[in-house]
Simulated assay, not measured.
Amino acid sequence: MHTPCTYPLRLGRIGYLNVLPIYHPLETGIIPHEFDIVAGPPAVLNNMMARGDLHVSATSSIEYGRHADDYLLVPDMAIGSRGPVMSVLLLSRRPVEELAGQTVLVSAETHTSAALLRLLFREYYRFPVSYVTGCATTQIAGPEAPEAFLAIGDEALRLRNHPDYPHVLDLGEAWRQWTGLPFIFGVWVVSRAAAAACRFSENPADLLRRARDWGEAHMDTILDLTLQGCPLTREELRVYYDGLVYHLGDEEQEGLRLFYSRLAASGDLARAPALAFFGA
């Protein structure tokens, strides 16, 4: 019998608009809880989970793929798309078919999207490109602006109509065209160590699903909040949120397994992990 956790429980929050429907009811007390919420970009949350600084977190899909032995998936919780995702974009000066031999700038904030981009170029478009890591917002304004760059999250929403980069590849749509399946960019995970050490005072899976369900039922409120300081119109935001997937159903799991199996086949993952769920 596990004893109750005596330390403060910490819940990781990706610092992007796309998770607002889930975290708004938690951060405002609409849905009470006992977690301390810690916000940051995906790569930072990945590192915090790996160190044990977080107990439950949104994390990039590839982080679970690399460290499935350390985590349990929160059932039916994900962030993904069934087509265009609008916030994971390759922006280019030239058509994607003409990027062979060019260098692509990749945001340091992303792991999953970078892996997907490499997979698409290697196995879908089938031509070589080189990659460098850096900040797109800074470098596109400098003297050595890249020929193409991968932008994610709020940066992608802000830069998607940049006049110097008229060619836009939506990675969520490219995956759907290639496989016919949804793409899961992020999942929620529970630390296996924390789950084994003690009993959570409240079920994090139930809490997150209740928050998600509240957000989906109150999208007008979410749209009002998102409009503050956002470069998109209300209708563009509605289309954006409508295109997102917040569930991890059978088809989403199939897409996630396929992503892992292709990364394992190419050597980018040591193996394709099984999907192990918290509470199962």
Rank of each mutant, 00 (worst) to 15 (best):
H2S: 10
G180T: 08
D76G: 04
S266D: 08
D36W: 13
G153P: 01
A58P: 07
P146Y: 08
V239P: 01
P273F: 06
D154F: 10
G65S: 01
L159W: 06
L89V: 04
H33E: 04
M49P: 00
M77S: 07
G80N: 01
A156S: 08
V96D: 03
A100K: 13
Q253E: 13
A156M: 11
G215V: 01
T103R: 10
D206C: 10
G83H: 00
S87F: 12
P273I: 05
L117A: 00
G186N: 14
A108P: 05
R209D: 05
V132S: 10
Y7H: 15
G80K: 00
F149H: 02
Y246I: 06
T59L: 06
E235A: 14
L105K: 05
R212I: 00
A265L: 13
A196K: 14
L269M: 03
L169Q: 12
T137R: 15
L89W: 05
R160P: 00
E173V: 02
P273L: 07
L20C: 11
E235T: 15
A280E: 15
D242S: 11
R94W: 13
S107N: 09
C5N: 09
S201E: 14
V132P: 07
I14Q: 05
P166I: 09
H162S: 02
L207T: 02
G255D: 01
A195G: 02
G229F: 12
P95V: 02
S130M: 11
Y241K: 00
H167W: 15
I79P: 02
G180M: 03
C230A: 13
P128G: 03
A50F: 14
M77F: 13
R158T: 14
V187W: 07
E34T: 11
T226I: 03
E173G: 01
A205I: 01
I79Q: 03
V245S: 11
D69M: 07
S113R: 02
R210P: 02
P128F: 13
G65Q: 01
V85D: 13
L258C: 03
I14R: 11
D70L: 12
H247Q: 09
E173R: 11
L89D: 03
L169A: 05
E98D: 10
A39W: 11
P4R: 07
T138S: 13
L169W: 08
S266A: 14
I184C: 07
P84H: 05
M86H: 15
Q253C: 04
G153M: 06
D268H: 15
T110F: 09
S191V: 04
F200G: 04
Y241W: 11
R13M: 12
L91E: 08
D250Q: 14
D206I: 06
L26N: 06
A100H: 06
G40Q: 06
A151N: 04
H218G: 01
S266R: 15
H167Q: 12
L248A: 05
L90Q: 00
A114W: 09
R51Y: 11
N203L: 05
M48C: 05
D268I: 02
P143R: 15
E34Q: 15
T221D: 13
R234F: 09
